[in-house]
Design a protein around this nucleic acid. Structure first.
Length: 260
DNA sequence: ATGCCGACAGGATGTCGA
């Protein structure tokens, strides 16, 4: 089973790019983030025509997450537990049944958190804490699970072209990195890191300052696997070439293959 | 030190992203 995640930065602006990539990459499951559209304006027909079922948790202008799946989606659940009053559409979870059992998948769009020292940064750290608490509950189910999406966290200095340039950014703060690490230390595996020893592999390049041309990227989109899923991990990769196409998202797809 | 670019809402230019 091939599962993927991609922050598309507006599904309306990216519909052609996304359908083109789906046709060539042929993931069984694709988690999308930053739809920037409501449920009723999500272009589900375009994906259903390619054989995908759609679960959507949208929001006008900001955020919005979806799960596309060639297998039927069950137990579709939007929103992280806790965080009363949090109306951001940043989390969507569902269960699919494969040939060898179920896989729980989550499409995640963690807050950016900039600038540091503001309530946006506090919100980011609190959101990551809520995610960790939920990840712990998912882990207790002792089943294959993949929590994947835009975590908006650079895990280590090896995941950024120039660590010094990001020292004052919310994505690279010790507290942000600890928030991601806390989830990994519960027992989750970073699928890409588990498959690749080489450093400086990126999933995001800013639109500005020729970041793509200079390979000034950061790795912030991650697939975290529960032990029962990691046991079936075969391969993982970043579809970097997508960033060089017409009207690209600033993020590219990350995927992994599970023997499920 | 700040903007660079791009999407959105709205109908000019400010907000947000990372």
């Amino acid at each position: 089973m091939k599962i993927a995640t991609w922050n598309v930065n507006s599904i309306k602006a990216r519909l052609e790019a996304v359908t083109e990539w789906l046709k060539e990459a042929e993931p069984d499951i694709a988690c999308l983030q930053e739809l920037k559209c409501t449920d009723d304006t999500f272009p589900r027909e375009a994906f259903e025509d390619l054989g995908y079922n759609c679960a959507v948790h949208g929001q006008k202008t900001y955020n919005g997450v979806a799960i596309l799946s060639k297998l039927p989606l069950e137990d579709v659940t939007p929103r992280l537990p806790g965080g009363d009053g949090d109306d951001h559409a940043r989390y969507l979870e569902a269960v699919v049944s494969g040939k060898k059992g179920t896989l729980r998948v989550a499409s995640i769009y963690a807050p950016n958190g900039n600038p540091i020292g503001t309530d946006k940064y506090t919100y980011k750290l609190g959101w990551l804490e809520r995610l960790a608490a939920h990840a712990r509950d998912v882990l207790a189910l002792e089943e294959p699970a993949a929590l994947m999406g835009d975590y908006n966290v650079i895990p280590t200095p090896d995941d950024v072209y120039d660590p010094k340039a990001w020292l004052n950014d919310a994505l690279f703060q010790p507290e942000s990195r600890a928030g991601l690490r806390r989830i990994e230390y519960l027992g989750y595996t970073d699928a890409f890191r588990a498959c690749h020893a080489e450093t400086h592999q990126y999933t995001f390049w800013d639109y500005q300052a020729g970041a793509w041309q200079k390979d000034h990227g950061i790795r912030i989109d991650h697939i975290l696997l529960s032990p029962q899923a990691a046991d079936h991990l075969k391969h993982s990769a970043i579809d970097k070439q997508v960033r060089g196409r017409e009207r690209p998202s600033d993020h590219v797809p990350v995927w992994c293959e599970l023997d499920l």
